[in-house]
């Protein structure tokens, strides 16, 4: 959980630039290094290429310049070891909650595991978490047989989170997972996410445009500029864990808030 400067990063973006075919440059020379078990929040105004960055980190989109290095190897295609939770929950409407959560396992069974990129590099035997355990961890017990249409937005995102975690991925990428939710649900889910992160200790990169959420969750907040996105500054968050929302009233929290706001809106 704490950062060890000597350990090599498990996932890094090295000088990533992405220009879309229509000419918009989404990212310019973006570099980011995530240490094992670290929680990084990336914050920035809408359209600063945050979602593009996550797609590049997940191997879904290749960059025009630079490279993504995962566990010492260049990432050229998606890797099941890098789980991505999408902005919309992306559930299969014809599957129940439990069937949706099990999907990655089902797809993994006949996966070509001999492929070097698809091996999950974490030699300590990590048993596949029991779906039932995960369901209760994200607070969905009793809804296993429900269909996505019967769920609220917050519950759908919990299902998506459980699905992203079912393979015990060493890396979890979160693309504004709570963006579309109301403030109260959002606070509850943020707390749940922090608890789960402490329990499973996966390296997590969260993209958000809520400063509070970023401070609450992260070890390190990376502040992004408007398009083309590049890093404008970084703030280390040294609040104790477990975190709870009462902390947001403390002077430390307020100071971090000010610091990040200043980075986001530099004075001319």
């Amino acid at each position: 959980m704490t950062s060890h400067p000597q350990t090599p990063p498990i996932l890094s973006a090295e000088g990533i630039s992405v220009t879309y075919p229509n000419g918009t440059q989404a990212l310019r020379l973006f570099s980011l290094h995530a240490k094992r078990g670290e929680f990084i929040a990336i914050i920035g105004p809408s359209g600063c290429g945050k979602s593009t960055l996550l797609r590049v980190l997940a191997g879904l989109l290749s960059s025009n310049e630079g490279q993504v290095v995962f566990n010492g190897q260049r990432l050229r295609q998606p890797n099941p070891a890098i789980s991505l939770q999408f902005q919309d929950s992306a559930l299969l409407p014809w599957r129940t909650v439990e069937e949706n959560i099990r999907l990655p396992l089902e797809l993994g069974i006949t996966n070509d595991t001999t492929h070097p990129q698809s091996l999950i590099p974490n030699s300590q035997a990590r048993p596949t978490p029991n779906p039932q355990l995960l369901i209760s961890l994200v607070g969905l017990a009793g809804f296993e047989q429900a269909y996505p249409r019967e769920l609220s937005g917050g519950m759908a995102q919990r299902v998506a989170l459980a699905r992203a975690l079912i393979t015990q991925p060493p890396i979890l990428l979160l693309d504004e997972p709570f963006g579309a939710l109301d403030a109260l649900t959002r606070e509850r889910l943020t707390e749940a996410l922090e608890t789960i992160w402490r329990a499973l200790s996966m390296t997590t990169i969260l993209v958000t445009h809520s400063i509070q959420e970023a401070i609450f969750l992260a070890d390190r907040v990376v502040v992004c500029s408007p398009r083309p996105g590049h890093i404008m500054g970084e703030v280390a968050i040294r609040l104790p864990r477990p975190r709870h929302w009462a902390m947001s009233a403390t002077p430390e929290f307020g100071q971090l808030l000010q610091e990040i706001r200043a980075l986001l809106n530099p004075l001319p």
């Binding site: 998606p78 099941p80 890098i82 999408f86 993994g108 070509d112 492929h115």
Partner: peptide, 8 residues
């Protein structure tokens, strides 16, 4: 994309 991530 989801199916691509899991190498379906």
């Amino acid at each position: 994309d989801l199916f691509r991530v899991y190498h379906a």
